[in-house]
């Protein structure tokens, strides 16, 4: 399976005053077998990036290559990729089975009928949609539709899967269920996958490799744990982690009595903030969010609001005075 590479890619839309740079200076590699997640807020350019990889848009600058072969200007059908869209794009006028067969029937593929049959069966088994085959998409639920959409991309046996926020239109519980299935599918098919999302929990749970995209620029690329532990700047730090990282300016850090370091912003992950009851303490516990398996403590100190994450039960109550402790090595310092 090949390695895909983007070098110095840029893309802009519009002209004159309305010109918008969707992507700038993108350098990215997707290796064989890898699940690369592009994490970024709305408008960061994730969709554009995926569409460039698909061939639905072409880059203004830079190159896109697959194993040294230049694919920058190649149309989508010659790239050997498959894409799953946000709004599923399952054809309502065909049955589920017809939808699954459709990608293989365009006449230029030269795939035999037995081969088509085999591929459809494999995909159906992998996704558990066997009893939906004769149904029409209009009668299916969101989760079922999404499975059919994934099935359509599976039958192509491409060398790269592109997923554009495929779970965004499903409700929370369904998202989680499909998420682990996607992970399993990616592993079973052993194919490279590029997956775009704005949901950081999803990104953390799925990624082999994570690329943070913000306003058209790649801020950091690496393994999710690495980026979580050592974010490149405060923007990246803020994007990963729930509850979000506690961020302080220099003044705020001083006001809290934090040990100072090199940079203009300090960041502290909620799980590294220790909280103990102390009647002389300088902070107050204003609220507790019980998550079941853990608690988020909302604290007030030096006029600021901080959050701490505690596994299990803290045994504390809102209104109590508490003492906060931080180990200096857990403080992250950023220039930006």
């Amino acid at each position: 399976m090949p390695t895909w590479k983007l070098s110095g890619v840029g893309k802009a839309f519009g002209r004159g005053n309305g010109r918008v740079e969707a992507l700038r200076d993108i350098d990215l590699t997707v290796a064989d077998h890898e699940l690369l997640i592009i994490l970024g807020p709305a408008g960061s350019g994730k969709s554009t990036l995926l569409r460039l990889l698909a061939g639905l848009e072409f880059a203004d600058t830079g190159t896109l290559s697959r194993d040294e072969e230049d694919m920058t200007r190649l149309p989508p059908d010659r790239r050997d990729i498959a894409m799953v869209f946000q709004n599923f794009a399952v054809y309502p006028h065909l049955t589920v089975k017809e939808n699954l067969v459709f990608p293989l029937r365009h006449g230029r593929g030269g795939i035999s009928s037995q081969d088509i049959e085999k591929r459809v069966i494999t995909a159906v088994e992998m996704l558990g949609i066997g009893d939906l085959l004769d149904r029409h998409p209009g009668t299916l639920s969101g989760g079922e539709l999404q499975r059919v959409a994934i099935g359509r991309s599976l039958v192509r046996r491409p060398s790269l899967f592109l997923f554009d926020e495929p779970l965004i239109n499903l409700d929370a519980k369904l998202r989680e269920g499909l998420r682990s299935e996607l992970h399993r599918i990616q592993r079973e098919t052993r194919t490279a996958m590029v997956y775009a999302t704005h949901d950081q929990a999803e990104a953390m749970a799925l990624a082999d490799k994570l690329a943070i995209l913000d306003r058209g620029r790649l801020l950091q690329i690496g393994g999710p744990e690495m980026i979580y532990a050592r974010p490149a700047d405060s923007r990246v730090a803020r994007l990963l982690g729930m509850p979000p990282i506690n961020l302080f300016s220099l003044e705020q850090a001083k006001a809290l009595g934090l040990p100072l370091g090199d940079g203009s912003f300090a960041g502290l992950r909620p799980e590294f903030l220790s909280v103990v009851a102390d009647r002389e303490g300088s902070a107050t516990l204003s609220a507790i969010e019980r998550l079941g398996h853990a608690e988020v403590l909302v604290l007030e100190a030096a006029g600021q609001i901080l959050r701490a994450y505690v596994q299990g039960h803290s045994g504390l109550n809102p209104g109590e005075r508490v003492k906060l402790t931080v180990e200096p090595q857990n403080l992250l310092w950023f220039k930006r």
């Binding site: 992970h183 953390m204 749970a205 744990e225 990963l240 982690g241 398996h293």
Partner: peptide, 13 residues
């Protein structure tokens, strides 16, 4: 089967 790194805590599957 899988370890999901969910930020503050990890989920073991």
């Amino acid at each position: 089967e899988h370890v999901a790194a969910l930020g503050p805590a990890n989920l073991l599957e």
